[in-house]
Simulated assay, not measured.
Amino acid sequence: MKRLESFARFSSQFWILCFVTFLGNTSMWLFLPFILIYINTSLGISVAIGGLVLAVNTVLRMASLAVAGELSDRLGRRTLLLLSLLTRMIIFAGLFLVKDVLSFMVLYCLMGIFISLGDPARDAMVADIVPEARRVEAYSIMRVAINGALIAGSTAGGIIAARNLPAVFAGAALLCGVTSLLVFKGLEETYSRKAAAQSFVTVLGDRKLLTVCFLMVVIGFMLGNLSIILPIYGKLVLELTESHIGTFLALNGIMVVIFQYPVSRVSQKMGSTSSLVAGCLFFTGGLLGMIGVVAYVHVLIAVALVTLGELLIIPTTTAMVSGLAPQEFRGSYMGLYNLSVYAGFALDSLVGGYVFDINVKAVWYISGILGVVALAGFYFFEKMRRSLSEQ
């Protein structure tokens, strides 16, 4: 009852925004786990070239994120959300309708500009409508909505793809259209002033931040294997069905929704060093475990281990970076942190695809090596940071 009363203190605008976030992210997860499968099996493009297309998409996504925050202050939160959803609807419809390879590749690359364009606007809108004392709780609820969308989208996408693979794009377009209508009718504009442009020049002088960001590129590469390489590995090597692939990706979202808060509580008691080391061990064990996978249940165990690593590392490093940041540069610090994770995803899309074409299991060995690098990096970084704080 107390929890229901607590939720009731959030405005209807917040809950509409949560639902919009859920629907918008569901549209993305309808197709994302199956994009390399579609490129390879339906368009006849190699996994390496498909990985290059995904890398370009991710680079453009990163570039749009670099300016999206300022755009949300200049154009408005609601306006940018609508722009992102409507352009995605048009592009998804195009991906469903086009049949030639070049048009598909161009459209998919362009989608990178718009797929996350509304994310900073969404986060800013939460801050606009929720009092500061309740924002941590509000962003936690938003994270549940995002991961709930992963569960719903990847599961529904697997069911749709098993019957008609291109139909996942039609479903994504329809969902973006419905979500756009909900934003237009249900959400009010919340921004009230224009913000000055931000720059990363000062931020780039912080060596501690750059060290963490480098390590997060490594973590991003490893985490990217879960949604980029593992689906195509499951399809071509393990001969799993699309429904199986959608289900093991849904497991990641289910674990985040259920275990993120209790794992974070345990992580706080463990301390940042132990949490990061344990997270790297889970990451490394899960990805190396893919080498010997012979049954679907083994894939589920590997995904569970990687997810445990994610639950330990992502909140810990986010808090670490926010602690490193001076108040006046906190947004820039967090922006560079987020970009570093996307850079890891882009690197995995590019390098992982080429490695997969050469040797289908080599990417898991590389991930194991990177896991050791991340573990050592976090351990010595934390040791250095504590040594400096004691001086």
Rank of each mutant, 00 (worst) to 15 (best):
V237M: 10
V218F: 03
C280E: 09
I232T: 09
I254R: 04
I219L: 05
G224N: 00
C280A: 08
L276W: 10
I228F: 06
F259Y: 02
E242L: 13
L276Q: 03
F248N: 01
F282P: 01
G271A: 06
K235I: 13
I219M: 04
F283H: 10
S267Q: 07
L215I: 07
G234Y: 05
S274K: 12
K269F: 08
F221H: 00
S275K: 02
S227C: 06
G205H: 05
V218H: 02
F214K: 02
A278R: 11
T273V: 13
L251S: 04
L209D: 03
S272W: 13
L223M: 09
M222C: 09
I258H: 10
V218K: 03
G246M: 00
Q268E: 14
L230N: 10
L236I: 14
V256P: 01
L238Y: 12
G286R: 08
F200L: 11
Q268N: 11
S274P: 06
L223K: 03
V217S: 09
L230G: 02
G271E: 12
F259R: 13
I258K: 07
N225Y: 01
Y261D: 02
T273P: 05
L240P: 11
N225D: 08
F248D: 08
G234P: 12
C213E: 04
M255L: 09
I254C: 02
K269P: 04
V212I: 07
L209E: 00
G220H: 01
S267A: 07
